[in-house]
């Protein structure tokens, strides 16, 4: 049973955060976006079998409780990602990543003529949720609107 497999994998972590249901191939990017460096043991699983998704990536970060707003950044690269906070082998909290209204410092503006590509400043984008569920981002500086897949992560 796949669900049991997942439970076992999750429960192996004593304390920390599991980010599951990442789009296959995005785990390393997700780590980068979260800006987690050194200190905590991190397990990266890529291209795991998933009943729902076919394949998925998974991240386990030991002894660190990620805050929802930190994980929300992940929604940009992997909208279905879930976050589980593990305490003493138990899932204490579980929720889905949710794209925030404003994204700062993680996306590079795709407009080559935008000031953010010249001056040393933190980028800032407004998330526009179009009625058909599509996500667009508007640069706070140059005001250009991009589809989610038209922008690069920093």
């Amino acid at each position: 049973m796949k669900e049991n497999d997942k439970t076992i994998k999750v429960s192996k972590l004593k304390n920390g955060t599991v980010i599951d249901h990442l789009k296959p191939g995005t785990a390393i990017k997700a780590l980068h976006v979260l800006g987690i460096e050194g200190g905590n043991a991190i397990s990266i699983g890529m291209y795991f079998e998933s009943e729902k998704m076919g394949k998925k990536d998974i991240l386990k970060i030991e002894n660190k409780e990620l805050k929802p707003h930190e994980v929300n950044k992940i929604a940009l690269i992997s909208p279905n990602a879930t976050l589980s906070i593990i305490e003493n082998y138990e899932v204490k909290k579980k929720r889905r990543a949710y794209l925030p209204d404003v994204i700062e410092g993680i996306v590079k503006c795709g407009n080559p003529n935008c000031i953010t590509n010249y001056e040393n400043i933190r980028t800032k984008f407004y998330v526009i949720k179009v009625s058909n569920g599509e996500i667009k981002l508007r640069c706070h500086y140059c005001e250009r609107v991009f589809k989610k897949d038209e922008v690069e992560l920093i």
């Binding site: 503006c109 003529n113 935008c114 000031i115 001056e119 706070h140 500086y141 140059c142 005001e143």
Partner: peptide, 9 residues
Amino acid sequence: HPLEGAARL
């Protein structure tokens, strides 16, 4: 300014 967003900055 020739760059977009310069005035906002």
